[in-house]
Structures are given as C-alpha cells and as structure tokens.
Design a protein around this nucleic acid. Structure first.
Lengths: 165, 165
DNA sequence: ACAATACGTCAGCTTTGTTGACACTCCAAG
DNA sequence: CTTGGAGTGTCAACAAAGCTGACGTATTGT
C-alpha cells in the first residue's frame, strides 16, 4: 500500500479517508432523498414514481424504452409505476405519431404540479448545501461524482446534460 | 427567485445547475453501489447485508440497538439480515459482558474476508474517482456532502468519524 | 416486587425489483 | 401481398427488503 500517508498530498487516498468518503456518500444520499420521500409517503407513491416523473419532466415525449434505459430497471418495474401515474392523471401516454408501437410520455398539469413540489424540496436542500459549501466545493463535488459514475451511467448523465439546457 | 444567474458567481445556484447536481448524485450513487451489488448478487445477499457488515466492521462490538440507530431501519428489518449473517457464520453475536441483555456484534474471519472483498471494490472506485478529481475536488466533495446530510445523519456520521481513525 | 430496557420473533403489508409469456405494430424478404 | 422476425408495451406471479404493531423473554435497576 503506497498511500499510507507517505506523501502529504496523497492523504486523501488513505484507506481511512476513502472509508470516510464512502460513509459520507451513504449518509448524504439519505439526506438527499429524505425530503421527497416525506412528500411521497403522504400519497401512495414511492421513490420510483419520483424518478419517473423527474425524467419525464426532463425529456418530455420520451418513450418507455428510453426511460427504461435511463433508469436501468426492467419493463415491468417501470410499467407498474407508470400505470398508476397514468391512471392518476399525472402522466399522459400518447401513441407515437410516426411509429405507433411507441408511447410518448408527457406530464399533465397535475404531474407538473407534483414534480414542482418534489423538485422544490430537493432543490432547496441542494441549494442550501451548495451555498454553504461555496462554488469551488461545488465544482469539486461535481468532478468527483462524475468520476464515480461508471461508463454507462456517465453516458446517460451527459446525454441528459446535452439535450437539456 | 433572485438566483437566475443575475450574479456570475452564483451561477452554480441556478435551477438548471441544481438539477444537474441532483442527477449527478443519482447516477453517481448507482455507480457507488454497483461493484458491491455485483458481488453480493452472486451470494444470497443484498445491500442490506453489506450495510450491516460495513458498520460492524467500523464499530466492532456494537450493540443491535446502536446499529439500528445508525442504519435508521426497524428491528425486524435488521434482524432478518442479521440472523442470516449469524447463521452463515459471518457475524458473531456475543452476550454483553457487563449487561447481559445486550448482544455485541463482531465479524468472524469469514465476515472479515467478505467485508474486505466488498470494501476493496468500493474503495477502488472511490480511490480512482478521488485520484481523477484531485485533492481540492475531494475536499469540495466532502464539504457538499456534509452540508447535504440532515442533522440526524450528520450526527451519526461525525460520531463514527470521531470514534474511528 | 415491579417497571423499564434490550433483544428476538410473529403476522401481515408495501414498494420495487425480477423473469417469463403474450399482444400489437412495423418492416423487409420472399 | 403475405408472412415472419424484431421491436414495443402489458400482464401475472414471485422475491428482497423495507414498514407497523404486538408480544415473549431475559436482565437490570429502583
């Protein structure tokens, strides 16, 4: 093990430092999901519904298959969630205009409303964390997270970044 | 909303930037758990077993109640996991020496071995991400994550940091 | 003696993941 | 034009892991 703090500048690669990074990631992720979870718990929804709503908002008109790839779950798992959201009138599923096998997904007004509530809660926490930590920290945060994704995830992530905004 | 990029230095608080932070967190967390998940899937274990093993390694001799508080799950949920780990000889449960109602939890040799396999995989990814991003980025990463935990989580996290290392 | 604590367990439910089978649609080769 | 294969979406049944609430037992301490 070369990184046993032999060099001062590599202190952040100590096993102990890495372990702290792992634990920070674990606890922070729980904070990250806590607010939306609380809102969702009051309805019959869970985290999976949130994810579906989020990415439909992000890429309106997306197909089921595309969503499947972004979320990395099986069809049935997504379908169950999608079905309840459609039944409840939060998501609209339109038959594809060119290829009628496809379904294009959109948020309804009610869907947008819920998306806003959830997003606001999550963004508020993110904003406060970003503000507390400062711009340089935020840049570092982003850099580490991107390096932590594996190739597949990174593709999905940067794919979204390029199409959005 | 004052943060609509009115000031250049607050660009990182734009809704779009926050949204990207949220998505980065989501995709990175999946990368973060991917390697251990792959290992665990080959056995009859899941993420819950990993968490139990991790924190028993971190705080050997911890009691069930303490673990319950750190993990923030219910007794039943933890017990199911703990029971299989004890049956499989990965965790040892010793009657508390001073208070015989308590059970002190330890990893057996086999438990240590599995912990190492899991930790190595996760640390390798963390190390590579840290190395790619550099020390300043790592510091920023940690700062943002700590700001993102809520009070309860932060207490557990810093509690561990102080007892460990 | 009695209340409180720590742990384990039972029953039953929910969310969210899985696999496998099936129906509808499209397109291209015969 | 028909027909067969590939693509897209739906449904049924099951598993992992979380939850609540109740209860039993051993132990502690007042």
């Amino acid at each position: 093990m070369p990184e046993t703090s032999s060099s001062e500048s590599l202190l952040y690669l100590t096993d102990e430092q890495l372990r702290q990074g792992i634990e920070a990631m674990y606890f922070a992720y729980r904070g990250f999901t806590a607010d939306p979870d609380r809102i969702l718990a009051t309805m019959a929804y869970g985290r999976a519904h949130h994810r579906a709503i989020h990415f439909v908002k992000r890429a309106p008109g997306t197909t089921v298959t595309n969503l499947l790839e972004i979320l990395g779950v099986t069809k049935q798992s997504l379908n169950r969630v999608l079905r309840t959201l459609i039944e409840d009138g939060l998501i609209e599923s339109r038959v594809g205009p060119t290829d009628r096998r496809e379904r294009n997904l959109f948020l309804t007004e009610a869907g947008e409303a819920l998306e806003n509530r959830l997003s606001d809660a999550q963004r508020a926490r993110m904003r406060s964390a970003f503000r507390d930590a400062g711009p340089e920290a935020v840049a570092g945060f982003r850099r580490v997270l991107e390096a932590m994704m594996d190739g597949e995830m990174k593709r999905r992530y940067t794919g979204l970044r390029e199409s959005g905004s």
